[in-house]
Simulated scan of single mutants.
Amino acid sequence: MLSQKAKYALRALIMLAEQGNGDDLILIADIAERENIPRKFLEAILVELRKHGLLYAKRGKSGGYRLARPPADITFGEVIRLIDGHLAPLPCASKFSFKPCEDCGDPEACSVRWLMTQVRDATAGVLDNHSLADALRHRLSTGAMAMNFDI
């Protein structure tokens, strides 16, 4: 299940994607207010996203945040893995963090693991093939207006 932290990260990134590829920086207070995200929680999320190269940040009076890469280059899968870890519904179905279940005698013969690896692959297929640019196109197609901030 998607954590609240990952959901907030995605919402903040989509909002930043609306601002385009310019040099304009968005204040954390504006992101928090517009997306209804607790500011302290958002600060921690944005620091993590910056640390992983998704955001550019500048401190000080004229500071703020913007995407460090084009929206088309940031996928939902990448963001969710950064925030929540693996996409597999069970540790034994994880591609990169495999851990056998304690009550399983043979992971290779386990029918539950077999199905959960298919769930993992389908989930990764969707999340890795949809970017912030796709989400932005969806948002705009629904009639939602991008909000421009005067910096």
Rank of each mutant, 00 (worst) to 15 (best):
M1W: 03
L2E: 08
Q4A: 14
Q4I: 09
Q4V: 05
K5G: 01
K5V: 05
K7C: 03
R11W: 04
R11L: 07
I14D: 08
Q19C: 05
G22T: 11
G22Q: 09
L27V: 05
I28W: 00
D30E: 15
I31W: 08
A32C: 03
A32D: 01
E33I: 01
E35D: 10
I37D: 07
I37S: 13
R39Y: 10
E43N: 11
E43D: 12
I45V: 10
I45T: 12
L46V: 00
L46D: 01
V47A: 13
E48F: 00
R50A: 14
R50S: 14
R50W: 09
H52R: 11
G53K: 09
L55E: 03
L55K: 04
A57E: 14
K58D: 03
K58M: 09
R59P: 01
R59K: 11
R59G: 10
G60F: 04
G63I: 01
G64V: 04
A68L: 06
R69M: 15
R69Y: 10
P70L: 15
P71G: 10
P71T: 07
A72W: 11
D73Y: 04
I74A: 02
I74M: 04
G77V: 05
V79N: 09
I80N: 11
I80R: 11
L82P: 01
I83V: 15
H86G: 15
A88H: 09
P89T: 06
A93M: 14
P100V: 05
P100I: 02
E102Q: 13
E102C: 11
D103I: 07
C104L: 10
P107C: 15
S111I: 03
R113K: 15
T117C: 03
V119I: 14
T123L: 11
G125I: 00
L132W: 09
D134V: 00
D134I: 00
A135F: 01
R137L: 10
R137T: 06
L140Y: 03
G143C: 06
A144V: 07
N148A: 14
D150C: 00
